[in-house]
Computed example of a mutant assay.
Amino acid sequence: MSCELRSLSFDVRDPAALAAFWARVLGRDVGESGTELLPAGPSDVAIRFCRRDDVRQGLGRTHFDLTSATAAEQDSTVALALDLGASHIDVGQLPEEGHVVLADPEGNEFCVIEAGNGFLADTARIGALSCDGTRAVGLFWSEALAWPLVWDEGEETAIQSPAGGTKIAWGGPPVAAKEGLDKLRLDLVVTGDSTLDHEVERLVGLGARRLDLELEPGEVLLADPDDNEFSVVAHGSEGDARG
């Protein structure tokens, strides 16, 4: 493996406020910057909240699925989120479905999953990043991160780190139309003896494409086969150190 998942970057209008919201909901500590949630365990990654005034409104292509150990914990998570400024939203969920669909204070969808969900068993507080996406993008990310497929049926795929933790899942078509930059992206860091140039070349060979957008020194922005932006940063660069 030549790169690993370093963090999730969330483009929002008020980074400090949303970091505070998600810190309470997820039970994580906020870093010194006030806009980053520190990993809660060895299988977690940091979550960075980045200011962007023109962030697109409405639902994104990716949302968090939060796990619940008991029915009481699900109720408690929902009540806490609502008290902190979340709201119920209707995305077409059926009354008999056990999960609760909410939006955070900036309108980003997330689901609080009922206890006993087999797919999310033995994951993390964020059980899954649930994404719109094709099977091809699931296969791409499995190769890019060297995470094995833990689900591959029909057009639906999911991967998970060998260390466990959050799954990344793609629901297959129809895939939501691309409207501007994604609000949430994966940030990768080069590992081992590999170089940034070599890693970018490898990812392009797997089906990514390089984007002509300026980032921090030592950081490259790419798009995966479904046109979702992600970044790759050289280990030890300014971009890597900012976390």
Rank of each mutant, 00 (worst) to 15 (best):
A17L: 11
T35R: 03
D90E: 04
Q57G: 12
L82K: 06
D75H: 13
W22I: 03
I47K: 01
R24C: 09
A40R: 13
A46M: 11
L102W: 00
A103F: 02
A40Q: 07
I47G: 09
A81C: 12
L94F: 10
A69P: 13
F110N: 00
F21I: 11
G98D: 08
S33N: 09
P39A: 02
D29K: 03
A17V: 09
D83H: 10
V78I: 02
L102H: 00
D90M: 01
I47H: 10
S68G: 02
R24Q: 15
V45A: 04
Q57V: 07
V45W: 04
S43P: 07
A16T: 14
E32D: 14
D104V: 00
L59N: 14
F21A: 12
E106V: 13
T67P: 09
H63Q: 09
L59Q: 15
V78R: 04
G31F: 08
S68Q: 00
A103N: 11
G92H: 03
L37D: 01
G85L: 06
H88S: 07
R28Y: 08
R61W: 07
A81F: 08
V78P: 06
G107W: 01
A71R: 07
G60R: 01
L82C: 08
I89L: 15
P42L: 02
P105Y: 04
L26V: 05
E106A: 12
A86T: 03
N108W: 00
L102R: 03
A72V: 07
H63D: 11
A19F: 11
H99Y: 15
A16K: 14
E96Q: 15
E96K: 13
F110Q: 02
L82S: 07
V91A: 12
E32P: 12
P39T: 07
D104I: 00
V30I: 14
C111F: 10
L38C: 10
H99E: 15
A40C: 05
Q93I: 03
V101W: 05
A69M: 12
A16V: 14
P15W: 09
A20F: 02
H63F: 10
L18I: 01
L82V: 06
S87L: 08
V25I: 12
A103M: 08
L38A: 13
V91C: 11
V78F: 04
A103K: 00
C50G: 10
A72F: 08
G85D: 02
V78T: 05
G60I: 04
C50Q: 14
F49P: 11
G27R: 06
P39N: 11
L94S: 14
D44N: 01
D44Y: 00
A81K: 03
D53M: 12
Q93K: 05
L38W: 08
A69E: 15
N108I: 01
E32F: 04
G27Y: 01
A17W: 10
R61P: 15
S43H: 07
H88V: 00
V25M: 07
S43M: 02
T70D: 00
L66C: 08
R52D: 15
C111H: 13
T35L: 05
E109Y: 02
L82Q: 09
H99P: 15
F49N: 00
H99V: 13
